[in-house]
Design a protein around this nucleic acid. Structure first.
Lengths: 191, 191
DNA sequence: TGGTAAAGCTAATAGTATTAGCTTTAAATC
DNA sequence: GATTTAAAGCTAATACTATTAGCTTTACCA
């Protein structure tokens, strides 16, 4: 007795980080909690419900970290801090990170809401560069692609050379930032 | 009778594209081929072997497409063609594309070899910009992150706004190209 | 103290991969 | 043409997985 949805998801986060998201099955989770797997259905809507819960928790944890490191910073300070915080999230919480990548299926409004919160944090950083409107939306897509691409390739073991990874990311961010700065300058010519 | 590994993988490619990589199970594949699932073990080393085969085929198909569109082009012509060809690959062959993303586990030398072939195609395009050495390796990581990030976010349904997707990608590539051009100019000052 | 609802349980069904070992098929050799 | 042999299929069995139905226990509240 004494288990609830929160505790089940807490255990699932741990299991995913320790043994991988694929190994996070209802059977293993139940065994770890000391109950039989059908009992999990009292707390969670089956395997799909468990995954949905982990996705939301992953998105929220990412957003929490990004907000924490960007508050009080702007422009490149905020941009670099945001990218590195996201990278750290993926490395420190591999299972939860993997869960956050699962695409929301139509009808999962709670997942979509957490995703939108994350986007708004990115947009807040970009606003500091003075881009707005469609300009800002294209930039948000670009920044998401850069960060997600770099971090997910790293998480998948895609970077095999010994070459300094941090420098690779910083160069990419610098190129993005420079483009953004130039673009803002063109859009709003000085007085 | 009359089945072999090639035909099994051909059918698996189709199944993955049509019903998704997750739905590509030995049981469903066998049913589609008109045999019982244990018989598949005569042609393929279980589910892991099937997945390994699909990963290699995905990487090779991607590389074939990238080589085809970049031959005879250089710099931005080659860069944009490469990125868009990869994007097209992901959209036209979603299952095979998803299979190509599976990370090679240590000991899978054939998978690693196909991955390296793909990298060398990217490096060939970057060579046209006049970058070399570590500079080129950082750039290759950046370009991979950009393209993989953009395409995989698109494949996962990550871009929900109506804003023109092609323009988002082109802007990102232009920023990358501009940085690369500037960088080459700094490294090798003119006569 | 008794009722009630939550939280657990067992049993059963259905789907998955995998192994062992048998049978058939087809081709090659005598 | 008959016989041997290897490949390619099969069935049966085991061990996972999720899921549902329905029963039992537990804990709390009136």
């Amino acid at each position: 007795m004494g288990l609830n949805a929160e505790a089940v998801l807490d255990a699932a986060e741990l299991l995913a980080d320790e043994e991988g998201l694929d190994a996070t099955t209802l059977a293993r989770l139940a065994a770890r909690l000391g109950i039989r797997s059908p009992s999990l259905y009292r707390h969670v809507e089956g395997l799909d419900g468990l995954r949905r819960g982990l996705t939301i928790r992953g998105l929220d944890e990412a957003n929490r970290r990004l907000e924490r490191v960007t508050v009080g910073r702007s422009r490149d300070d905020a941009l670099f801090a945001l990218a590195h915080a996201y990278w750290r999230f993926a490395r420190e919480r591999p299972g939860l990170y993997a869960a956050s990548l699962r695409a929301a299926r139509s009808g999962e409004n709670d997942v979509a809401r957490s995703g939108e919160a994350l986007l708004s944090t990115v947009l807040a950083v970009l606003a500091g560069y003075g881009v707005s409107g469609n300009e800002a939306l294209h930039a948000a897509r670009g920044l998401r692609a850069i960060i997600h691409g770099f971090v997910s390739l790293d998480a998948a073991g895609g970077f095999r050379l010994k070459l300094d990874l941090e420098e690779s990311l910083n160069r990419l961010l610098a190129a993005f930032s420079r483009d953004l700065t130039d673009r803002a300058g063109i859009d709003e010519p000085g007085p």
